[in-house]
Nucleic acid binder design. Structure first.
Lengths: 113, 113
DNA sequence: ATATTTTGTTTATTTAAATCATCATATATA
DNA sequence: TATATATGATGATTTAAATAAACAAAATAT
């Protein structure tokens, strides 16, 4: 990517862990299916070298390559829940606090009628 | 990436959908938290332009940028289940067929004792 | 309404991601 | 066993991803 970003160059532990595990998971899924890297790479139009990078969890590799590998392996559906707004409790709470669904309680009873 | 790969240049619909939704989800989570792109970008060491790319679901953007954004938003844990070997039914089935846990049934009863 | 902040768009520059070739080293398969 | 296939590692080349500056347009705040 040119001028490699901090997050790629020195990812925090949690990010690095997520990437390496994702790579390991993809590798395991591939081996279980008895597929070669080249076979998967060819299907999504990348080289076997990038496929190797993916299995290492390389931070700078294009996200489409990762997603494509998952797609070929039939493991894409599990991506749908990532950052799903419906399950973002924190976000929902903050939103609700700003735009309450029910009218805020009045200090005193309305006396204009 | 140089020589942009096919999967990035012309992703299949399922891949494109996954990316755009991921971007939308990240955007929604950011807005709910009342954070600016610049605020998130600065925390993970990318520019606001890349943060904009992420919210568009740009295929060629480094995966670490996406994962980093999820990390800042506190939405990283949902990545852990992606391609989790324990939930890869297809893979488990194939593996089991090759290396059966229980000994395969003998054609005839063992008569050597 | 006015000021401020955030986001969108464009252009130019930098530099590393992706490819390819090659050889070494496993890891199957006959 | 030998043979074929798959993976690992290195270096050179290509080219587009990421940045930055500048200005416009929206959105938000005062």
């Amino acid at each position: 990517m040119a001028r490699v970003s901090k997050i790629s160059q020195a990812p925090p532990f949690a990010v690095e862990k997520t990437l390496t595990r994702l790579g390991e998971n993809i590798r395991k899924a591939r081996l279980r299916r008895k597929l070669t890297r080249e076979a998967i790479a060819e299907k999504i139009g990348i080289s076997r070298y990038v496929m190797a990078d993916i299995e290492k969890g390389k931070p700078t590799t294009a996200i489409a390559a990762y997603i494509g590998a998952l797609w070929v392996l039939g493991l894409l559906d599990q991506m749908d829940k990532v950052a799903d707004p419906d399950f973002d409790l924190e976000g929902k709470t903050l939103e609700a606090a700003r735009s309450p669904k029910t009218a805020p309680k009045r200090k005193t009873l309305s006396d204009d009628f």
